[in-house]
Design a protein around this nucleic acid. Structure first.
Length: 341
DNA sequence: AACCAGGCCAACCGCTGGACG
DNA sequence: ACGTCCAGCGGTTGGCCTGGT
């Protein structure tokens, strides 16, 4: 991480050749970008940076949005299923993190890459070493993983689960979630967190309540939230709440299983008590069954306003590069193959 | 309590490729 | 054909946190 709010170029050059900021994003910057994306939607990142009043380059804005602010992001620890899927996909795709991320709803390539490099790689290496010592006849390379269960054993993944995970994530139209917001119908449950990321923002969140109230009002104003019916619409009609799976084009994928932690204190309290804690998100989200919510002013808790599967960095699948589903179909038992990269 | 090493991960850097004039 | 701009991608950096000593 960079030093917060540091203006490196300004420090280096008093003439301030460039007013572009670098380093960590401040809550104010996050709010600006989030507000802009909510109201204007995605466009040219250079313009976004300029028009949103951010002294950041477009690239930085894009990265911040993709890796942190994007509302359809799922934070917290990777589930065992996700871990297995990452390992499987990595055994096929290698370091094509974006393609792996495209099949993991709510996860970013950066997140997966970090997770791989920090955790899985070592775990698999350890496992391979164990296998190498315990099984001399083991012929596959230890430098890169094959189908290895994250807990240490070779464990073929349930084919149906894998198929479901991949197909579901690929079924979403993946331009950007904001584009989806503006061009598609949306499903809302009455558990609704418009800004899940703000609840685990490591910055001082004392202003979060006002911000969220304002944002809820903003969403209402632009006609995206119908508080009476718990439905979001954007002028293109509405979808019935709680449709799942194939019933809806924009359903939560299986991995997005979330439940309500009714017993927790209010999220804002939680946020306030954890402000400036860099590892807040880790401690709060280690259990994927515990999702934190921000109570809106109308007392409606909203969950995952924008989470309609993976919108993978606003990019579409590149099936011309990897016909993954076709690949699976061609393979009688996908996970039993000995992939080597 | 202080120090240190290692882990984690947000953010940056540099490159590539596509779109467009 | 060439140059420019931009988005996307993968690799790398470096600051903060945690746990061990």
């Amino acid at each position: 991480m960079r030093k917060p709010y540091m203006m490196e170029k300004d420090k280096m050059n008093n003439n301030i050749k460039s007013k572009l900021r670098k380093g960590l994003w401040s809550p104010e910057e996050d709010e600006k970008l989030l507000r802009y994306m909510i109201t204007k939607g995605q466009g040219c990142w250079s313009d976004i940076a300029r028009n949103a009043g951010l002294q950041r380059c477009g690239k930085s804005c894009r990265l911040r949005w993709i890796n942190y602010l994007r509302p359809d992001l799922k934070r917290g620890a990777f589930s065992p299923q996700e871990e297995e899927l990452i390992i499987h996909l990595h055994s096929i795709l290698g370091n094509r993190w974006s393609q792996i991320a495209a099949r993991l709803p709510g996860r970013t390539d950066n997140e997966i890459k970090n997770f791989w490099n920090s955790t899985l790689k070592k775990r698999l290496k350890m496992n391979n070493n164990i296998n190498a010592t315990s099984s001399p006849n083991n012929s596959y390379s230890s430098s890169e993983p094959r189908d290895v269960n994250v807990m240490g054993g070779i464990m073929p993944m349930n084919e149906h689960d894998l198929m479901t995970m991949c197909m579901d994530s690929s079924s979403s139209t993946s331009s950007s979630c904001m584009q989806s917001m503006h061009t598609t119908n949306m499903v809302l449950t009455d558990q609704f967190d418009p800004f899940p990321l703000l609840s685990n923002n490591r910055y001082d969140m004392t202003g979060a309540t006002d911000f969220l109230d304002n944002m809820a009002a903003c969403l209402t104003q632009v006609g995206m939230v119908d508080h009476d019916h718990g439905v979001v619409h954007d002028g293109y009609g509405t979808l019935e709440p709680n449709k799942t799976g194939l019933e809806s084009d924009f359903s939560l994928p299986p991995l997005e299983s979330r439940s309500i932690d009714d017993n927790s204190s209010t999220p804002i309290d939680h946020v306030k008590s954890h402000n400036n804690n860099n590892h807040f998100k880790n401690s709060c989200f280690n259990n994927t069954d515990h999702h934190h919510h921000i109570q809106c002013s109308n007392n409606v808790v909203v969950e995952d306003l924008f989470g309609f599967g993976n919108h993978g960095h606003g990019e579409s699948f590149r099936m011309e590069e990897w016909d993954f589903e076709g690949l699976i179909q061609d393979i009688p038992y996908f996970s039993s193959l000995d992939f080597q990269v």
